[in-house]
């Protein structure tokens, strides 16, 4: 397996090495507590969990590919590098409006991966992988249309469970989602990663609301990657031009893109899910409220859900509020 962390890392390249791309999307309170043995308590719970997972499962990973998506995610590999023998490749993400550095980084990564796998990542090999992954993404896109339909036909909680296959690199697995119609208020989910272990929050939310779209590290973000030219340039172009990470400076485009999504999906409100000490979203929440003009339900978490009854109250109240407005 080859572990990776970020939406900017092209899975097609990783897969072309013959290894299975495995997205490090671990996050639950148990792993997070384990991670605290290596990190301060005020580190991101996702990073704490991922580190604990990697250390525990060292032998499963042939290599790891990280990115400079955020400071903590980048430094995670610094620690892995010190504590394990797994080769680590950290890619510079686009952080301002300038594709040059990203394109060069992809070229670099290709060479590293070729060296690692002892395999030439030539055009044929890449086309094969691109087609394979585009195909699966297309299947998810079809499902996503059902989710976004009005009324919504499938739940995000179910979608998330299904999407785990994609993230874990099980490209050939069957995708089955039972339809569950819902006329609950339509909300858009935004914020920190929804991890493998965080389906619980989606279920809780969807008892009273229906999530019809999302933008975070997880769930459906990969749907936005659409590779037109079936070659390396196509990969670079598609990955660089995906809806930008909130960390890209300036982040106007993030706001523009999300606003258009809110309109497109006819949402009534936004749910902002943030992990403790996740700067990227915590800093922006106040601006989001005024920029988007939608009510936002904030849920901040360390994955522990100790305050479950309070979260439920908030969700109910949010629903009551949205219903009174609709």
């Amino acid at each position: 397996m080859i572990g990776y962390t970020c939406s900017y890392i092209p899975v097609e390249l990783l897969a072309a090495t013959g290894l299975k791309p495995y997205r490090l999307l671990h996050g639950d309170i148990g792993l997070s507590k384990d991670g605290e043995r290596l990190l301060r308590i005020d580190a991101c719970p996702l990073v704490k969990s991922n580190i604990a997972y990697i250390i525990k499962n060292q032998d499963k990973f042939t290599a790891l590919v990280g990115s400079t998506g955020c400071d903590m995610a980048r430094r995670m590999f610094d620690i892995v590098d010190e504590l394990t023998d797994i080769p680590v490749y950290v890619l510079n993400n686009p952080r301002t409006d300038n594709p040059k550095i990203f394109n060069d980084e992809i070229d670099w990564l290709v060479k590293e991966l070729e060296h690692l796998s002892n395999r030439k990542l030539n055009d044929d090999l890449l086309r094969l992988e691109i087609e394979r992954w585009e195909n699966i993404r297309e299947q998810y896109r079809t499902l996503n249309k059902k989710r976004a339909a009005n009324p919504s036909l499938i739940s995000t909680s179910d979608f998330h469970k299904a999407a785990i296959n994609y993230y874990k690199g099980d490209v050939d697995a069957q995708i089955n989602i039972t339809e569950k119609h819902s006329v609950n208020p339509r909300v858009y989910l935004i914020g920190s990663a929804i991890t493998y272990g965080a389906n619980q929050i989606l279920e809780l939310l969807e008892q009273e609301l229906r999530i019809v779209g999302d933008f975070n590290c997880g769930i459906s973000r990969f749907l936005n990657i659409e590779i037109k030219d079936k070659n390396l340039n196509g990969i670079k172009h598609a990955y660089y031009n995906q809806p930008p990470c909130i960390f890209k400076r300036p982040n106007h485009k993030f706001y523009e893109w999300t606003s258009s999504q809110l309109k497109k999906y006819t949402c009534d409100g936004i749910v902002a899910w943030t992990l403790d000490y996740c700067d990227s979203y915590e800093f922006e929440l106040k601006r989001m409220e005024s920029r988007f003009g939608f009510p936002i339900l904030r849920i901040r978490s360390d994955f522990s859900f100790q305050n479950l009854s309070q979260i439920k109250t908030r969700i109910s109240a949010f629903r009551e509020m949205l219903c009174s407005k609709i």
């Binding site: 409220e289 009510p295 936002i296 904030r298 901040r300 360390d302 522990s304 100790q306 305050n307 309070q310 109250t313 908030r314 109240a317 949010f318 009551e320 509020m321 009174s324 407005k325």
Partner: peptide
């Protein structure tokens, strides 16, 4: 006692609200 909340009202209805975290 365990919760604090702030509610913004518009036209007699809840417009925004927020509660303390854990």
């Amino acid at each position: 006692g365990q919760d604090s909340k702030i509610i913004k009202i518009r036209d007699g209805k809840v417009d925004r609200f927020i509660m303390n975290d854990r």
